[in-house]
Amino acid sequence: MASNIITFGGVFLLVAVASAFDIWSVDHIPNAKKSNDKVIRVRDINVPAGTALDFQGFDGKTIEFHGRVTFGYKEWEGHLIIIKGKNMNIKGMPGHLIDGEGHRWWDKCGGNCGKKKPFMIYTQLENSYVDGLKIKNTPAWCFAINQCSNVHYSNIDIDNRDGHTKGGHNTDGFDVHKSRNIRIYNSKVNNQDDCLAINSGWDIVFENNVCEGGHGIAVAVGGYDVNEAKNILIKNCKVIKNNIGVRVKTLLNGKGIVDGVTFDNVELKDISEVGIVIIGNYLNSGPRGEPTGGIPIKNLNINNVRGNVFGNGTNIQINVAPGSPSGWIWKSQVKGGKKNPNCKGTPGNLNNPCNW
């Protein structure tokens, strides 16, 4: 434990300061793991190609990112950064940047074809905080939030705006799977896919975030080993220049449940395709066929979702299996675009919002 000497009222005080272990190379990580230092400082690392910056076995420690973190180029399907553990504190320090230099992988087709592309950051955390990270140009997906519980992600800046002109695709901001009690707030995403995609999870809050340039905010359930999304709150967010505003989509012929999704005070600005989408016939290649009811959408609350869609777009699209949804509450004001006369499956307690 290091110490600092400070003065207070002319009296010298000896103050204990937590010692830190500096990492300048991935070769330092094993020694950092064995050290008694509570703070691990990552400084200006270039991670070798095909290697993860791997923080497993750092329970109870703080990981600070300083300077610029970069990665060698290789076509592979691993993760550039792995963070697993309990009671961890992940912090981005002033002036730092995690730079994926994604243009080296971008080929306009993301994970669907072309080059093999790594995930940017894989997190599997418990009782932890991730705060202040600044991330630029991810090869494809940014955050995998997988099997996490009681974790806060805050003040995160994911900047993939270069991908709009250089071939970025599937550059999701936050992908959530099998996680519980997750809060993502005060963050920004500029990308070419979902800002947030919840595939499964319980008690998730996405609040005070700005999503720009991508495919909107999605609860997308089906096709995984767990197909439940319950008690989801998306609140006080802005979706700017995305093709979709907000959506709930369930897999065609899938099994599971969506229960208790709320979109509250969400502002849509300059949406190009559809403002609000609720569908039960989703496939990765796009909606297809008649919706199936194996993943019913219950207790959906659309409250004060407002904004504008461009003239060739559609305000609201609903296509769910009749009789499968229940308990919907709807209050939206999406202007511009076109009304969709073919909305299907709205529960009986609600007048069809497509006709408002």
Rank of each mutant, 00 (worst) to 15 (best):
Asp107Cys: 07
Lys116Phe: 10
Asp44Ser: 13
Asn319Ala: 13
Gly289Val: 06
Ser3Cys: 06
Ile297Gly: 02
Ala144Met: 11
Ser326Leu: 10
Asp175Val: 10
Gly214Phe: 00
Arg306Lys: 14
Asn199Gly: 15
Phe71Asn: 04
Asp175Gly: 07
Gly275Thr: 03
Gly260Ala: 05
Trp202Tyr: 15
Thr7Tyr: 09
Val151Trp: 05
Gln333Leu: 10
Asp175His: 07
Gly254Ile: 02
Val219Ala: 03
Lys74Tyr: 05
Ile234Leu: 13
Asp157Phe: 06
Val305Asn: 03
Phe8Ala: 15
Ile23Ala: 06
Cys354Ile: 08
Trp76Tyr: 12
Leu125Phe: 08
Gly286Arg: 00
Lys188Met: 10
Thr262Trp: 01
Ser285Arg: 14
Asn170Phe: 10
Asn160Asp: 14
Leu196Tyr: 01
Ala140Gln: 09
Gly72Asn: 05
Cys354Met: 09
Lys241Met: 09
Gly216Asn: 08
Asn243Leu: 07
Glu101Val: 05
Val176Gln: 03
Gly311Asn: 14
Gly168Ala: 11
Asn112Lys: 12
His66Tyr: 14
Asp203Pro: 02
Val239Glu: 02
His96Arg: 03
Met93Gly: 05
Gly307Lys: 01
Ile40Met: 02
Asn46Phe: 12
Trp202Arg: 14
Ala144Trp: 09
Asn349Gln: 12
Gly327Gln: 09
Asp225Glu: 14
Ile198Val: 15
Arg104Pro: 00
Phe310Ile: 09
Asp22Arg: 08
Asn181Thr: 06
Asp225Leu: 10
Val11Asp: 13
Lys338Phe: 04
Val221Tyr: 00
Asn315Thr: 13
Glu126Trp: 08
Gly85Phe: 00
Asn199Leu: 15
Ser3Gly: 04
Gly313Arg: 00
Asn301Leu: 08
Val176Ser: 04
Leu97Phe: 03
Gly92Met: 05
Phe310Gly: 10
Lys241Glu: 13
Asn301Ala: 13
Arg41Cys: 08
Ala18Lys: 13
Gln333Asp: 13
Trp105Cys: 06
Gly57Leu: 00
Gly10Ile: 03
Ala144Arg: 12
Val151Tyr: 05
Lys338Met: 11
Asn89Thr: 12
Asp259Val: 02
Glu228Ile: 09
Lys230Arg: 13
Gly307Ser: 04
